[in-house]
C-alpha cells in the first residue's frame, strides 16, 4: 500500500542559518515526484527530512498521519520500516565482501523483529526480487565485484524486498554511464507502473526522471520555487530563476532534457 507524506512549515538550521524551509509539501499516496534543483538547493536534505534521518528544528513531517518530527528514536525507527531508501554511493561501503544475496537480504532486516533471524520465506522473497531484476546468475558474487549499474540494481532490489510503502531515491543514476543511467531509470519506471508505490526521487539530470514521474518539486536556496505537473514546471521560468541562466527543456523519446538555451 502506498503512503502519504506531508510537510508543513519545516525548517532545518545549521550554524544559525536556515538551509531548508518548506512551507507546505503534500505527497498523496501513489505520487511519483521528482526533486530537482541546483547544487546546495537542499534536495538531499529534503529527502533525509522526509525519511526522518534529519529531525527538523521546526515544523511537522507527517508520514501517514504520524508526525515523525515528534517521535522518539525507537518509534521513529519502527515507522521507517516502511520506507525504502536508496542513498548516494558515498553513503555505503561497497568494499566489503558481502555477496549480492546478502545485500538484498538486508532489506528484510527491519521487517523482522530485533532478535528474530531471517526465515526461509524472507530468502524466497529476496530471490524473487533478484530474479525480477535480472541478477539471478550473480547472486553469489560479491557486491564489490559488480559494476556501478549492477550495484544500483542490487540496492533497488534491497529496497523492494522491504515491501516499502514509499521509495526514496537519491540520485540513483549518478556515476553511471548513460546506458546504465537509462536502464536504472527504466527499472524505476516499471516498478512504479507495476506497484503504484509513492516515489520521491532526487535527480540532477531531468532526463533521468522516468516518464511516469508526473510531478516536479524544484528547490532553490532551500525553498520550493515551483511544485506541480512536470510539463508546467518545465514550461515555466522557474528553472531560469533557479539556475540563473537561460534554460530550455526539450523532450526526446519521452525524456525531458534541460540545458542552457542555445544562442544560435
Amino acid at each position: 500500500m502506498s503512503s502519504r507524506l506531508s510537510l508543513s512549515n519545516v525548517k532545518i538550521k545549521r550554524s544559525g542559518r536556515t538551509i531548508l524551509h518548506i512551507d507546505n509539501l503534500q505527497i498523496p499516496p501513489g505520487t511519483f515526484a521528482g526533486i530537482i534543483g541546483t547544487n546546495g538547493a537542499g534536495k538531499t536534505t529534503l529527502l533525509k527530512v522526509c525519511c526522518g534521518l534529519i529531525k527538523p528544528n521546526q515544523g511537522s513531517v507527517e508520514f501517514d498521519d504520524t508526525n515523525l518530527a515528534v517521535l522518539g528514536p525507537w518509534k521513529r525507527a519502527n515507522l521507517r520500516k516502511r520506507i525504502g531508501y536508496i542513498p548516494q554511493a558515498a553513503e555505503y561501503n561497497s568494499e566489503l565482501p558481502f555477496t549480492l544475496r546478502e545485500v538484498v537480504a538486508m532489506g528484510r532486516i527491519s521487517v523482522r523483529a530485533l532478535l528474530s533471524p531471517l526465515r526461509r520465506q524472507d530468502y524466497e522473497y529476496v530471490d524473487h526480487w533478484i530474479d525480477k531484476l535480472g541478477l539471478t546468475n550473480r547472486r553469489n558474487q560479491t557486491f564489490r565485484s559488480l559494476s556501478g549499474g549492477e550495484q544500483q540494481k542490487v540496492l533497488i532490489a534491497r529496497a523492494m524486498v522491504q515491501n516499502p510503502a514509499i521509495l526514496m531515491l537519491d540520485e540513483p543514476g549518478s556515476n553511471l554511464d548513460f546506458n546504465w543511467k537509462y536502464q536504472i531509470t527504466d527499472i524505476i519506471d516499471d516498478l512504479y507502473q507495476q506497484t503504484n508505490i509513492t516515489i520521491l526521487m532526487v535527480s540532477h539530470e531531468t532526463n533521468l526522471l522516468p516518464r511516469s514521474c508526473g510531478r516536479i518539486v524544484l528547490l532553490h536556496q532551500g525553498k520550493i520555487l515551483a511544485d506541480g505537473p512536470a510539463e508546467e514546471v518545465f514550461a515555466s521560468d522557474a528553472l531560469e530563476i533557479a539556475y540563473q541562466c537561460p534554460v530550455e527543456t526539450v523532450e526526446v523519446a519521452g525524456r525531458k532534457y534541460t540545458a542552457i538555451k542555445s544562442k544560435v
Binding site: K48, C51, G52, L53, P73, W74, A77, N78, L79, R80, K81, R82, I83, G84, Y85, P87, E91, Y92, N93, L96, F98, E102, V103, M106, G107, I109, S110, R112, L114, L115, P117, L118, R158, A159, Q162, M168
Partner: peptide, 26 residues
C-alpha cells in the same frame, strides 16, 4: 549471533540502516 542481521546492515551503511527502520543507534 543475536544481532547478526542488524550488524550486517550497520557494516554496509549506517544511513541505510537508519533510514529503513533498523534500531541502529541502539
Amino acid at each position: 549471533i543475536v544481532f547478526n542481521k542488524e550488524m550486517k546492515v550497520l557494516l554496509f551503511s549506517r544511513s541505510i540502516a537508519a533510514a529503513t527502520g533498523v534500531h541502529e543507534s541502539f
